[in-house]
């Protein structure tokens, strides 16, 4: 298959987002329109006369990528061009914070588009500021003493809204991500994939550990992999033996000063949430 994202991009070494972008187009192919907000993924959309995409792409504003998708999707519908994928590739800040209203509106209206959030758990493109998606205990430049509040769960919000397809994914399990992109394409309506995406510079982690960290996030139950088609939850990766949260945290300098009770709360919340997912699956 032709590579639809250019080689030699200026993303950082070990960037999870770049792998996500390449994987999206590996699955969806040429008949795809990509949108990126001002964020790390805008690097793919390019600068001046250069672009990283070999498919049509549009640079959105930070808070309205889902509204651009709405207009594009409805125009395609009006033109009877139903075989073109419309894909937003936005970070966690552009999704769970400033982009939430446009996303919720577009999902409520039921437009056909795929929204992939690459969750690197902070505003990384502006230089590591906390977002609603930053976990408890993580250092960022605006939480120099570590974040006090737990991570916002956008996936549950969208589930509550009745989105036809929602999934979590991780760059640590890229085949699982690709399967979910393929499913999202078949949905006649909005599809959302929340994808865990380590950021070595922002997380003070080694680039070579990106995949390892992304797997550990899943295997510790901190970031369980599941999907829900019309609200039917299915855990797509069952964790048989829970990995060590300590190991996960120690690979990342951002957690250097995390307090014991915060580690405790991360572990408890992770276990509770994973069990809740298993329960909803059983129903």
């Amino acid at each position: 298959m032709a590579d639809l994202v250019s080689k030699g991009l200026t993303t950082c070494e070990g960037c999870g987002m770049e792998l996500i972008a390449r994987s999206i187009l590996d699955v969806l192919g040429q008949n795809t329109i990509m949108l990126t907000p001002p964020s790390c993924s805008a690097i793919l959309t390019g600068f001046g006369s250069e672009t990283g995409w070999k498919v049509p792409a549009f640079q959105s504003n930070l808070e309205n990528i889902a509204a651009y998708c709405s207009g594009i999707s409805v125009a395609l519908e009006h033109q009877n061009k139903t075989d073109i994928n419309v894909v937003a590739l936005a970070g966690d800040g552009g999704t769970v914070d400033i982009g939430l209203q446009a996303l919720s509106g577009a999902v409520e209206r039921g437009h056909k588009f795929i929204y992939v959030c690459y969750d690197n758990e902070a505003y990384m493109n502006t230089g590591i500021q906390r977002s609603g998606s930053t976990p408890v205990g993580a250092w960022t430049t605006t939480t120099p003493g570590g974040k006090k509040e737990p991570k916002k769960n956008i996936v549950e919000m969208l589930l509550a809204q009745g989105i036809p397809y929602v999934a979590t994914a991780s760059v640590g399990y890229i085949d699982d991500f690709k399967k979910k992109v393929a499913k999202a394409r078949e949905i006649d309506g909005p599809a959302y994939i929340h994808t865990f995406s380590p950021c070595p510079p922002g997380w003070r982690a080694k680039p070579r550990d990106t995949i390892k960290i992304a797997k550990l996030a899943v295997d510790t139950n901190l970031f369980p992999l599941f999907e829900a088609i019309d609200g039917e939850v299915r855990v797509t990766r069952k964790v048989r033996k829970v990995a060590s949260i300590k190991e996960y945290l120690e690979l990342q300098g951002r957690f250097r000063n995390i307090r014991d009770e915060e580690v405790e709360s991360l572990a408890t919340d992770a276990e509770n949430y994973y069990n809740k997912l298993l329960e909803s699956e059983a129903k």
């Binding site: 040429q30 008949n31 795809t32 329109i33 805008a42 959309t45 390019g46 600068f47 001046g48 672009t51 995409w53 070999k54 498919v55 049509p56 792409a57 549009f58 640079q59 959105s60 594009i72 073109i84």
Partner: peptide, 12 residues
């Protein structure tokens, strides 16, 4: 925006 004639719009 047309997959048959791709271009990137509105970039930096």
């Amino acid at each position: 925006l047309d997959p048959d004639d791709p271009m990137t719009i509105n970039q930096l």
